[in-house]
Write a protein that binds this DNA or RNA. Structure first.
Length: 439
DNA sequence: CGTGCCGGGGT
DNA sequence: ACCCCGGCACG
């Protein structure tokens, strides 16, 4: 019931900072306290003075003075001491009384104090203070809860293209308004909000958790500007409140499919921007534009150009370089080549044609056949300036899908001649692709 | 036609 | 795994 009370009498002007609830009641007391004062309450326990209300100057009250009750007029009500200065006309003097000793009606008629007039259970002062504190906390949380959720719900859904005027979303925007107005029940609690949130990704959920529990609402309010991060990925526009969450969002949703090893860690930085939102502005009554629209954006990074992955993330399909030594035709080189053959350029004295062979090889079209380790190395290192589309695109085997193009390199047969067949590489001897003079 | 080498078979 | 060869494609 107190909740209803506090919700309905949300203050327009707060007087009692030290006692939020008192301030609230005070507000209502201006109109309500007087006329309820004389009503016949059934609260028999309230045979004492005024509790937890503020008396305003000029208000008529009754006090005991010199063993007799006198009517008086409130001159001042000191909240700190809970003392009331009352001018007693009969005595023509001003008296000070504790609030508890002040009556709004003659005790002879009805022996109850102001506190009983408002439907508040009689309690000790301590418990009453606790009530105030609790009520203040409730109020605080209620009034601040919109701030908490705003960064998430205030922004368009991921599918939005950035236009913030989402009419149906305005219901959420209503919480931006401080004026919860006459809604009898408390505003929809945060968990209800969370349920409505589309579970797009875990990042958002975590954001919600962080926002709701880790970050006390008042802290958010310290600066009147809220910071959030908006994903710049096309057709996304997701808003998160932490950089970590945003980076994770970009990583998982947008960059996730790319080669993780090749991807630069900081690449996510290019795909989000920092946005700010004025609390005051956003808490304006609903209807004056979407509350979700960020008041201004800052530090706009270069346009995302996202569909074209940055060079950092572009990775040569390593599958193309598959090591497929179909045949272990590693002909023992006649001059004793070592295992290094696969990687090092074999350059025995007799293989002088090798150099030209390699040079010509670079221009030769690629072949469908899987390449050997040596070929990989050569293709990776010896021709860095070749057109990238030849390097990174999947096998562009020119014409023949099944048979490799005849290399221009001289092969063992040509080098050694058929009469020195024993000097051929094994592959050549076996009529396989030459492993010594690679294409 | 010479050459490179794939696919397949034999041991 | 090693060895050989038929046969095809290419220059």
């Amino acid at each position: 019931m107190e909740r209803v009370l506090t919700a309905t009498v949300l203050p327009r002007s707060r007087l009692g900072k030290r006692s939020p609830l008192g301030a609230l009641v005070c507000n209502s007391s201006a109109e309500g306290l007087v006329d309820v004062g004389g009503h016949g309450g059934t609260d028999g326990a309230g045979a004492h003075g005024v509790h937890r209300v503020k008396l305003y100057p000029g208000q008529r009250v009754y006090v005991h003075c010199g063993g007799q009750e006198h009517a008086g007029v409130v001159e001042q009500h000191n909240h700190v001491d809970n003392e009331v200065s009352i001018f007693v006309q009969q005595l023509n003097q001003c008296v000070h009384r504790k609030l508890e000793d002040v009556w709004l009606s003659p005790s002879g008629s009805v022996a109850h104090s102001v506190s009983s007039s408002i439907d508040v259970p009689k309690r000790s002062v301590e418990s009453a203070d606790m009530d105030e504190i609790m009520a203040a906390m409730v109020l605080t949380s209620l009034s601040c809860s919109p701030m908490i959720q705003s960064p998430i719900h205030g922004e368009p859904a991921p599918a939005s293209n950035g236009t913030d005027s989402t009419g149906s979303e305005m219901s959420d925007g209503g919480y931006w308004s401080c004026d919860h107005g006459n809604s009898s029940p408390a505003p929809s609690p945060p968990d209800a909000e969370a349920d409505r949130t589309p579970p797009v990704d875990d990042g958002l959920d975590m954001e919600m958790d962080q926002m709701l529990f880790d970050e006390p609402a008042p802290r958010k309010r310290k600066n009147s500007v809220k910071v959030a991060y908006r994903c710049l990925w096309p057709n996304c526009g997701k808003i998160l409140t932490t950089i970590v969450g945003m980076k994770r969002h970009i990583r998982t949703l947008h960059l996730g499919r790319q080669n993780e090893q090749e991807r630069c860690q900081r690449e996510e930085d290019f795909y989000y921007t920092e946005i700010y939102q004025d609390v005051e502005q956003s808490s304006a009554p609903a209807g004056c534009g979407s509350p979700s629209s960020p008041s201004h954006q800052r530090s706009s990074p270069p346009p995302p150009e996202p569909l074209q992955p940055s060079p950092l993330s572009q990775s040569a399909p390593s599958s193309f370089w598959q090591v497929h030594s179909e045949h272990s035709y590693q002909a023992p080189p006649p001059v004793g080549l070592t295992v290094c053959k696969a990687v090092c350029v074999p350059a025995p004295p007799r293989w002088t044609p090798l150099v030209t062979a390699h040079q010509s090889k670079q221009a030769a079209p690629f072949r469908r056949r899987s390449v050997s380790v040596g070929e990989q190395w050569l293709q990776n290192h010896s021709a860095p300036s070749r057109p990238p589309h030849l390097a990174s695109v999947s096998p562009p085997r020119s014409h023949c899908a099944t048979r490799r193009v005849r290399g221009e390199a001289k092969k063992c047969r040509k080098v050694y001649g058929i009469e020195h067949r024993d000097q051929w590489c094994t592959a050549c001897r076996w009529k396989k692709a030459c492993q010594r003079f690679l294409d």
